[in-house]
Every structure is written in structure tokens, then in C-alpha cells.
Amino acid sequence: MEKTPVLASQSATIAKPSVAYHKKKKFSWDKMWSFLTLVPSLAAVLIFVYGFLGWTGYVSFTKWNSILPDYQLWGFKNYQILFQDYRFQSDLRNLLFFTVFFILACMVVGLFLAILVDQKIKGENIFRNIFLFPMALSFIVTGVVWQWLLNPKTGVNLIFEALGASHPPAWYTSTRIVPSFHVGQIQFGLPIAMIAVLIASVWQMSGFAMALYLSGLRAVPEEIKEAAHVDGANGWKTFWRIIFPQLRPVTVTVVIILVQSSMKTFDLVYAMTGPGNGYVTDLPSLDMFTTTFQANQYAQGSAIAIVMFVLMMIFVIPYLWNSLRKEGQ
């Protein structure tokens, strides 16, 4: 369970050093050709991924904040403006709460569903597919559907009102932030409006966590479970002490994949709520889009992109480093 097939690009990077380990002294045409066939894709990745990454980084230090390119260097000024910005401060707050709750909820719901499906029930395939199905939808579709469902005047609130609720939830139109204390220019806390976005995103992605956990559960050797049973452990104890620790690698994979997908979230929020009432549902990706393509402030937009990149690397680099080290052993 070390490698899941989902992160193809990562397993490719992991595989690279192993070539070096088994280096043969003899020159072989086969080796040569396989190397040559790799060159084009390597070059493409070098230019179109790392090259453009570097270019974005460079632009973020320039004065290019109108349609006309201006490559005069401006130091960290773009970043300075950014971190003083009400909208960007709101973005970081929202991103923090969105990411944390999104991952926790996906893990809990995903693991719960996986355990249910793993009970050797009839029609397991049907359930598995039902839980996995939302993932097949585009985030735009999810966003539009949940926008209707959670619209305070027309959605599920009609049911609440029919049941007699006098103050049904305001969902994504709420401006409340809990707890609310002043940090920088903004109120810090969980924006209640984010809960609506969280519901939609967890609905979409928890099936994915379930699939990973299910394969993790299936990989736990039967003998260990039997041994635990023989030693007198009950079902709960077996799960908590024996099976759950075995799921650690899967959990790491789930977290890494969900972190990077939550940090990039754009389409869901764009379709569902937009920046929201006082930027309560805004995310850096939306800010980046507006800044770059509507305000034509390319350097500012690049700075947002670089901040997002750095945040993502904080999670991904330790994971990659860890995998590489294990591969070397």
C-alpha cells in the first residue's frame, strides 16, 4: 500500500533514482533508446511545468500590473501589498478552515463508508459505485446543484420552513464568523458560509477517500485479524489497535491528495457562491483569477500563485522526501 496508482507523476519521480542504483557498466542500445524516448517528455515537463513556474516567480517580483508588460524589478512589493489586502487575508483564513475541515470530514466519512462496504454485504459493488459516483461529476455541476439546494430562499430551507423552523440557516449568504476576533484587517474564525461549501465538497470527495480506505482495509492480512481474535480482542479493539494503525500509509496518501485538491479549489466556489458576502467564501484561486485576468495585474496575480505554490509545497515536500527515503532503503 505504499504507492497508490493515483499520483502517477509522483511515482514517476520516485522511480527515477532506482535507475541510478542498478547502473550497469556496459553500454546498451536498449538503455540508450529508452533514455531517448524519455527525453521529449522530460523536455516538455522542464519547459511547460518548471519553466513556467520559474517565469511566474519572476513576474511576481516585477512591476507588471497593467496590460503593458513592465519587467522592472520591484522586490517584494507585490507580496507586501498582498498580505495587507483585506481580500487576501480573508482568502488565507478561508483556505485554512476550508482545508482542515474538508480533510477531516472526508476522512471520517470516507473511513465510515469503507467500513460499512467492507462488511461483506450483498450488492457491495452497487454501494461502492453509489458512494464513488459524485467524484465522476465536474465541480461546476456540483457547485450549481448545491447552489440551488442551499439557496436560503428556494432550497432545502423550504423543507425546514414547512416543518416550522422560523429561522432556517442562511447557508452561504451568512456573514457570521465564529469565533470572531480581530486579526490584521479581518475577523478571524470559521465563516459560517463556508459550511455550505464544505458540504458540497465533502459530498463530492468523500467517496474517493472511501475507495482508498477500502483498498487499505482489504490489504490488512486475515491472519492478523484472526490472531487478535484468538488473543481475545473484541471488534472495536481489533479495529482501533490492529487495523487502524495499518491504515496509516493510506491516511497519509488521502491527506496529501485532498490537501492539494482543496488548495486548488476554484470551479466549485466559482459556480456555487462566488467570492461571497464580504469575501466569506473567497479562496486564493478566485482572487488570482480576478486579479490577473480582470484587473490585468499580472505581477500581483503571480504573487498569489506563488504563495499558493509555497503553501502546497509545505505539505508535498515532506511526503515526497519520505517516500524517496523509503525507496532508497
Binding site: 500590473n65 497593467s66 489586502d85 483585506y86 481580500r87 456573514t175 484587517q185 467570492p275 458576502n277 464580504g278 469575501y279 466569506v280 480576478t290 486579479t291 480582470q294 484587473a295 490585468n296 495585474q297
Partner: peptide
Amino acid sequence: ANPAFETAATQAVTMLISTKNVNEFISA
């Protein structure tokens, strides 16, 4: 106004609606 100012002013109005702080709005 130019697109960059328009975007910034739009952000300021959005901020104003949530904070109701006129002085902050004017300085933005």
C-alpha cells in the same frame, strides 16, 4: 476608471457591506 482601480473599488464595496466601516472604505 481603469480595470485595476475598478477591481480594487469593487473589493472595497464588498468589504464595506460586511464591515460597515466607512473610514476604512474611504482609505481603501
